[in-house]
């Protein structure tokens, strides 16, 4: 029984791969892991999303005109002007500069996404954690409410909310809040469900039982042991929900419940106003806001889908290895116990 197994041959242990701080950040970690097509998708998504965000931040600098500007020193822009040097994407039926409004629209979109996700993520996580861990009647009631909210079409909810908040027509913040809150209501159950399911799974893990054995109270177990382990999938839902939030905002604007053109630029509103233009051959008023929506949603979705694939080891692609390549990992035998002197040295 007093044996110490010493590896017989010389064995090179796998070099420890300790990524730096940046390598451990959620998205960058996946970027490092990815190869081939998956990497291409992720990079494309990241580039599009980055451009989207940068445009939103620097819209006041990039845009040649304000979003509600109708005239400059040379006089009024005129309605439905085709693309020209002064208005590279033409002007709308209302006489706004299309290029400027597309750029400013990014700002509105980013604001709505941030607010919608921030509102829903905290409420959703907290509810999911408490309901999953404590269970019982609270859990059952919350699940029923969540299911009921799922049954509503999100756009209908959004319309109702935008009427409640601002009587249908709205200012910049009224419109953004209406869109963000309506999306929040729809998203809370999503975060709630994911976190609840994870919590129920983690609740049965031995490390939670071990914490219980040690006498830890429910709040300590929930926040120290369960919460951080349950948030693995959040970046994925976060990105997928962002694109959905963007689409809901555009949908609201398209249906006429969006933001007044004098309050903020909004792609859905512009699309709505461009409806009649399309049949009369005026393509530029509809094309560019539409393209902006497609690109923004595509970028965010690409990031989300790639993260989803990369999070699953079975879907994650890897570089092919050559024959007889690679180092043998030291897995077979537990390292021999360090001798007394070794421990002393190491502890010194």
């Amino acid at each position: 029984m007093t044996t110490e197994l010493v590896p017989t041959g010389h064995v090179a242990a796998l070099p420890p791969t300790k990524p730096g701080f940046f390598g451990r950040l959620p998205v960058l970690k996946q970027l490092r892991q990815s190869v081939g097509l998956q990497r291409g998708m992720l990079v494309a998504g990241l580039v599009i999303t980055a451009i989207f965000v940068l445009v939103a931040i620097f819209a006041p600098l990039i845009a040649p005109y304000g979003f509600s500007q109708l005239r400059d020193d040379a006089g009024a822009f005129g309605a439905q002007q085709p693309p020209s040097a002064a208005h590279i994407m033409g002007t709308t039926v209302g006489g706004y500069d299309v290029y400027s409004r597309v750029l400013w629209g990014a700002q509105t979109a980013v604001l709505v996404i941030i607010m919608a996700v921030v509102f829903s993520i905290f409420a959703g996580i907290l509810l999911g954690l408490v309901s999953g861990y404590l269970g019982g009647w609270l859990d059952r009631v919350l699940v029923v409410i969540g299911d009921a909210i799922y049954a509503f079409p999100s756009l209908l909810l959004a319309i109702v909310l935008s009427i409640v908040i601002s009587g249908g027509q709205s200012s910049l913040w009224g419109g953004i809040m209406a869109a963000a809150l309506s999306i929040t209501v729809v998203f809370i159950p999503q975060y709630y469900r994911v976190i609840r399911a994870e919590t129920i799974r983690i609740k049965a893990e031995p490390y939670v039982e071990s914490a219980k054995m040690l006498g830890a109270g429910a709040p300590r177990i929930m926040f120290r042991h369960v919460l951080r382990n349950a948030t693995r999938t959040l970046p994925i839902i976060f990105t997928l929900n962002s694109s959905e939030a963007l689409l809901t905002l555009a949908g609201l604007g398209f249906l006429g419940f969006g933001i007044e053109p004098t309050a903020a630029a909004e792609w859905g509103y512009d699309l709505n106003k461009a409806l009649s233009d399309v049949t009369s051959g005026i393509w530029w008023t509809a094309l560019y806001p539409g393209l902006a929506i497609v690109l923004a949603v595509l970028g965010i979705t690409l990031v989300g889908e790639s993260l989803n694939d990369l999070a699953d080891p079975r879907l994650r692609g890897r570089k092919r290895v050559k024959q007889k390549e690679g180092t043998m990992s030291l897995t077979s035998v537990d390292k021999p116990l360090p001798s007394e002197t070794e421990i002393l040295e190491e502890n010194a």
Partner: peptide
């Protein structure tokens, strides 16, 4: 060899074995 996230990992390095008819060959190891 296997492709893993940490690079190539070798699992088997030059194994030569024969199993005859009607024989039970046990492969043991940790």
């Amino acid at each position: 060899s296997f492709a893993t996230d940490a690079g190539a990992v070798k699992a088997v390095a030059g194994v030569t074995l024969t199993v005859n008819r009607g024989e039970v060959l046990a492969i043991v190891g940790e």
